[in-house]
Design a protein around this nucleic acid. Structure first.
Lengths: 209, 209
DNA sequence: CAATATCTACCACAAACGTGGTATTGTTTA
DNA sequence: TAAACAATACCACGTTTGTGGTAGATATTG
């Protein structure tokens, strides 16, 4: 019998999963929480769940941030992330933080069941499509790492993007035409595999440049 | 005897400090450079300075960017930032990058002397947690007018902005109309005193939200 | 020398963003 | 209970971005 807890803020997603898993003879669903904080208030330290289905985009402490917290307090509990995004970055962060599985929220209930059983039996649940994404993530961050090298000018521009300046202002600061800055920005985007200033800022501040 | 190096591009600032510190019996000023690059060319790896007085706004590699470089190569060297700005943000960045002190350029020479001695004796060691407090102190002084507290919904939206999503995608993820997301974004911008997604990302990743 | 990389700059067009409004429905709280 | 806040959503308009091109001027280097 596999004990499960669900942490998911959206009732429309949480409840169907809850109901379904509860009807399965292999499982006992201990409880479902709407946030990480609620989870920590609710769970019984004597009876930690075997598996936690954890939403990635929770209000307050995010699911991603919660992984480490949960792993610290409940080292034996396996975590399966639930998410609407199939973003390689998030998947990588989740897996490398200690999550054992990663499911999209539109995954059929039967598949969720299979995944839970697999993870409970010590197998890491990773579908081949997700495996590919994780692989690509590493590929992008290792092999591209050398090509991640921005030129001096490009780095200057990144710095000003991070400061929130418009291309017009950057052009004025660096004494270029706005079109020049846009050309550099295009090249930066290609090198970093992004397509917005916001992503450049995030990548830069994560130290990934 | 405390050994010191000065990295400051403006001669009118560098020289007086150099001259003054050299006359003090507690100090030996090894050399003064006009840039970080020059510093790395000049310094003797066998005789790393105890203290570096480092300008924050240097041409080429900025002082802020140099902190990590210096700390890597010279882990025992303490860094005191020199600056004309008393911008809480820059101070925070400097301190959290590993600088041990922060002096405005118009600080009286005697005060500079005191600070150097204090830092050399391990006194003004600032942990990153203290840095955050320092930062909060400045932050509270600057932004008394506005409540920085975002609502639950607003935080959700910020999270997705940080992930680089367009308003269209955010709307789809959260099940809202694009106009709703834009309205929330407007409110977020007002609360944070910004006017672009890139600035929201930067603020969020600096932990200022 | 020829290839490569960097920096410069322009055009054009669609998409997205930022900002000013207004307005309805609930919920919270002073 | 009236006021304030939170969340929803629409309109309109100008600005900014993002993306597809092309292309000349200088290094740099194999």
């Amino acid at each position: 019998m596999i004990s499960i807890a669900i942490v998911e803020d959206i009732e429309e997603i949480r409840e169907p999963i809850f109901e379904f898993l509860q009807t399965q003879k292999e499982f006992v669903v201990l409880f479902a929480s709407g946030s990480v904080e609620e989870f920590f208030d609710t769970f019984d330290p004597e009876l930690p769940p075997d598996i936690i289905l954890l939403d990635i985009g929770l209000p307050g402490i995010s699911g991603l941030g919660a992984i480490k917290l949960i792993k610290e307090k409940l080292p034996k509990t396996e975590i399966i992330m639930l998410t609407v995004y199939d973003d390689a970055n998030k998947i990588f962060q989740a897996i490398s933080s200690g999550a054992s599985g990663y499911l999209l929220k539109n995954t059929p209930l039967e598949k969720i069941k299979e995944s839970v059983i697999e993870v409970a039996n010590g197998g890491a649940q990773m579908s081949s499509s997700i495996a590919r994404k994780v692989f690509n993530y590493f590929n992008n961050n290792v092999s591209t790492d050398s090509e991640y090298s921005l030129t001096k000018k490009e780095k200057e521009i990144v710095a000003q993007i991070v400061d929130g300046l418009s291309y017009k202002m950057i052009a004025a600061n660096l004494g270029n035409s706005i079109e020049t800055i846009k050309t550099h920005a295009k090249n930066i985007y290609k090198k970093l595999h992004v397509n917005s200033k916001a992503e450049v800022v995030a990548k830069s501040m994560r130290g990934e440049i």
